[in-house]
């Protein structure tokens, strides 16, 4: 086999799989640049391993490689920046009582993450009001003063925030139970 054929074969695999590897890394690392670096490294290695170019093998191999690369990057970052992460005290959310379930004890961390994700998705004002109310335990009156809002608006924000939370948690619970 000549080098041109070898190159052509490689490029076909590249065109088919490179975008997938890059996208997968980009959505987990939320960084296009890091994703591009990782994807390029993986394919530079793949060039030297034609024995892995076979259709099914290459998919498994690329998944394993991209996952390892992503995990290594994350682990390296974690060691460099020892951050502390805040705990949402889900017990302070009495509205979440109805979701008390033995499974939720096992998946405590996962539930926390879901709650935080729901908070991340909220508009800024709504999240701030909700955090003041449920985590800092401020009264609606105090929040209204601090944020320069009417009490009705504060109540409305809290109502909508709880609705968002329940929606996300309920969907997750639904999948778990059935």
């Amino acid at each position: 086999m000549d080098t041109e054929l070898y190159k052509k074969e490689f490029e076909e695999i590249f065109i088919q799989h490179f975008p997938k590897v890059r996208t997968f890394a980009a959505i987990l690392l939320k960084s296009e640049q890091e994703a591009e670096d990782i994807a390029q490294d993986i394919f530079v290695k793949l060039w030297e391993q034609p024995d892995l170019w076979e259709k099914n093998l290459v998919r498994n191999y690329l998944y394993t490689m991209v996952k390892n690369h992503i995990f290594n990057r994350i682990k390296r970052k974690n060691i460099e920046s020892k951050y502390l992460y805040s705990q949402i005290n889900s017990h302070s959310l009495t509205e979440m009582e109805e979701f008390k379930d033995p499974l939720n004890e096992i998946y405590h961390e996962e539930l926390q993450l879901l709650l935080k994700l729901a908070l991340e998705q909220m508009p800024d004002k709504r999240r701030q009001v909700f955090e003041m109310s449920r985590f800092m335990h401020l009264s609606n009156h105090t929040i209204a003063e601090k944020m320069d809002l009417s009490i009705r608006t504060v109540e409305q924000h809290i109502y909508l925030a709880l609705k968002d939370l329940k929606k996300i948690i309920l969907i997750a619970l639904f999948f778990i139970k059935f």
């Binding site: 987990l28 995990f71 994350i74 682990k75 974690n78 951050y83 992460y85 961390e109 993450l113 994700l117």
Partner: peptide
């Protein structure tokens, strides 16, 4: 950024 770090820590 904070949540991203927390998610990634959880993931790994």
């Amino acid at each position: 950024a904070d949540f991203q770090a927390e998610f990634q820590k959880w993931l790994t």
